[in-house]
């Protein structure tokens, strides 16, 4: 078990290293920073001084090491727009994002998983078909369309809920519903197919044949086995608690990380973009790591040997 965990941790570290490298390479490819920051007609001596000050005259690998060391300590420099450290700007937005993504996550779990299990147990019933029809919409209706339709109905037509801003808790309702409903639909579909796969296995038939009550077959044999693939998608959802609301935050003018990212991309505020990139990478990788370890705990097979199957 220790070796298994160690190999997964190493892989997670590798991915983080890769994100930092990606940011560095893209940053260097995108142009000479001296030219980006200083005006075109700046005197050559000033440009030279700038390069020296920022270490741009040193060999590229030295720059890379310096960049990676700074990045991993969270230092991406200051935001171009308001001059504060980029990482500070990002971190202060995180609670706002979590304020809508965590309730949405609970809706996804609380609605999606039971609906999927129910649909699988009552296959081809009216409710199963209804669940699947709704869940198809979860795949094909983009979140901004769903968001605008909700605004059209609940803000414009009925006037029940505010359409944008973050002044009160009512402002959070539409973003949470948008995120939660779409995610629940995806999760329901996924849970249903995982359940159906397990219900078709011979050991389920064996268990019913030897007289185990159906309830116990479901709770003792089907659910734990169907949980294994479901953990992966739930893990991905946990990992995207920070990243997953980019579009929705923008529609509802919700001041979270996603909206900051969109604004920073539009203004090409590179320090902030890099800080967000790393924050998202860390949350995704940490969630993946947790999923891998949960897998090892739920399912003894990958622990022994064939870890990379």
């Amino acid at each position: 078990m220790f070796g298994f965990v160690a190999s997964r941790v190493a892989r997670a570290a590798l991915t983080i290293g890769f994100v930092v490298t990606f940011a560095f390479v893209v940053l260097r490819l995108s142009g000479d920073p001296a030219m980006l920051i200083m005006s075109v007609d700046a005197p050559p001596e000033a440009i030279e001084a700038f390069r020296k000050a920022w270490g741009l005259d040193r060999p590229i690998w030295e720059q890379y090491v310096a960049y990676a060391a700074k990045a991993l300590s969270g230092d991406f420099g200051n935001s171009m727009r308001d001059g504060r450290p980029a990482i500070e700007l990002v971190l202060e937005r995180v609670p706002m994002t979590l304020a809508i993504t965590i309730p949405a996550f609970l809706i996804k779990i609380g609605l999606g998983i039971p609906a999927g299990i129910f649909a699988a147990l009552h296959r081809n019933s009216v409710l199963d078909r209804l669940t699947m029809t709704v869940s198809v919409a979860g795949f094909t209706v983009p979140s901004f369309v769903l968001a605008l339709l909700l605004v059209l109905v609940f803000s414009v037509q009925l006037g029940w809920l505010p359409s944008s801003g973050s002044e009160s808790w009512q402002h959070a309702i539409l973003p949470i519903i948008t995120l939660g409903v779409a995610g629940a639909a995806v999760l329901a579909r996924f849970t249903r197919s995982a359940m159906l796969e397990v219900l078709g296995q011979p050991y389920i038939r064996t268990a019913s044949a030897k007289g185990v009550p159906w309830r116990r077959v479901v709770s003792g044999h089907a659910l734990p086995n169907a949980a294994i693939p479901t953990v992966t998608i739930v893990g991905f959802m946990i990992g995207s608690l920070i990243a997953g609301a980019v579009v929705v935050e923008s529609v509802f003018a919700w001041p979270g990380v996603g909206r900051l990212l969109v604004a920073s991309v539009a203004n090409r505020d590179l320090a902030v973009v890099q800080a967000i990139l790393l924050a998202i990478a860390i949350s995704m990788v940490a969630a993946n790591l947790a999923v891998d370890i949960a897998y090892g705990w739920l399912d003894p097979r990958p622990r022994r040997g064939r870890a990379h199957a």
């Binding site: 590798l14 990606f22 893209v26 990243a243 920073s264 990139l277």
Partner: peptide
């Protein structure tokens, strides 16, 4: 395989946004 892992572990929209920020 490392590249595949990287691509699969990051939401592509975020990568796309980062590239658009860097390159215009």
């Amino acid at each position: 395989l490392v590249l595949i892992d990287f691509q699969a572990s990051m939401p592509f929209m975020i990568i796309a946004l980062a590239v658009l920020a860097f390159f215009g």
